[in-house]
Amino acid sequence: MNDYIIPLCYVAAGGLFIVGLKGITQPKTARRGLRAAEAGMLLAVVGTLLHKEIVDFKWIILAFVVGSTIGALMAVFVPMTAMPQRIALSHAFGALAAGLVGTAEYYNHQPEIGAFTMTAITLEVLLGFLTFTGSLMAFGKLHEILPGRPQVYRGQNVVNLGTLALAVAAGVWLITDPSKTFLFPVVAVLAAAFGVMLIVPIGGADMPTVISLLNSYAGLSSVAMGFALDNKALIIAGALDGSAGLLLSIIMCRAMNRSFTNVLFGAFGQADTSA
């Protein structure tokens, strides 16, 4: 019975997410779109809870209560002017979840993990942790906990891309030999470090664009999670997010007359003029 209900829940959830995103782009349908997306999320969660692998509900209920309380408090008490950093912080939490799920998946199944699943887990952890620290940085900058202006130094792009390359190299090594457990924390830490470095050279008006881009990364991390767990709801929602986030950041750049590659690679060549 559940073999039919669960996939149907996921299919309906995927459809509702599409209706939701479509709706929110127009004033008339925005509210309906929001309701559709909420219903989609509810269906996805209900479908998952019916899963036969889930045998113990007490921790889930506890986490639901704590998470809903914190989420609701943050939503209600944040002033409207602080919206962008609130979205960034929300991202950080979602991406942290993705990273942690990837971590648990790896340690539950190693050393016998197929190459495809291991690739998915590695991508999930890479994107999850870099989005986590990146979003926290964006939050800190917008909230003026950290200095908001772009921080640039000589050779920054080399250092940043070098860190990413190292993380990817460690990830590839891990994919070829999942039994090398020491590599897993290396991938996670390098990804987290890259997330910080990614945001250091970005500041001011470029921030909302970057938050949208981080949104896209969080979506792609969900896609990877969907492949690792063979869950289509994750793939649909993640892909929608990934592409919508990317396109939105490009649209926002265009609206502000900024070059998208400049935002991607930080203050590269623009820091002097913006002061």
């Binding site: 939701g20 889930i60 942690l100 969900s222 999670m225």
Partner: peptide, 18 residues
């Protein structure tokens, strides 16, 4: 809204937690 939808990682988290 896309941020809220990115919370779909909840689905994977539930499977691990339970």
């Amino acid at each position: 809204l896309t941020n809220a939808v990115a919370g779909i990682s909840l689905v994977g988290s539930l499977v691990i937690a339970g």
